[in-house]
C-alpha cells in the first residue's frame, strides 16, 4: 500500500520535473540569420580602416596611380 503511494509520488515528481523541460525546448534561434548584413558591415569596416593606407599608397606610387593634373 505505502509502496504504491511512494511509487505514485515518484511518478508525479518525475512528470512535474519534465514539464518545464518541454517548455524550454520551444525556445528557438531566429529563422532569419543576420550574417548577410554582417558581411557588408565587415567589408565596410575593412575598407574604412584601409583608407589611410590606401591614400598613402596612391600618393607614393604616381606610376601606378597617374597623378595631377589628371587627378588634382
Amino acid at each position: 500500500m505505502t509502496r504504491s503511494w511512494t511509487r505514485a509520488a515518484q511518478l508525479a515528481v518525475g512528470v512535474a520535473a519534465a514539464i518545464p523541460l518541454t517548455g524550454c525546448i520551444s525556445v528557438k534561434a531566429p529563422d532569419k540569420p543576420i550574417d548577410v548584413n554582417l558581411n557588408v558591415n565587415i567589408k565596410q569596416q575593412v575598407v574604412v580602416t584601409l583608407q589611410q593606407d590606401v591614400q598613402q599608397m596612391i600618393q607614393k606610387n604616381p606610376q601606378a596611380f597617374p597623378p595631377a593634373p589628371t587627378r588634382p
Partner: peptide, 28 residues
C-alpha cells in the same frame, strides 16, 4: 603595378588584395 601594391598592403593588413583594390577604388 597596382596589383603588386594591393598584394603588399593586403599582406601587411591581413586582408585580401581584392578588398584593398575595392578600398582604393572608393578613393579614386
Amino acid at each position: 603595378r597596382r596589383r603588386n601594391l594591393y598584394i603588399q598592403l593586403a599582406e601587411r593588413r591581413n586582408v585580401t588584395a581584392q578588398l584593398v583594390g575595392m578600398a582604393t577604388a572608393c578613393q579614386l
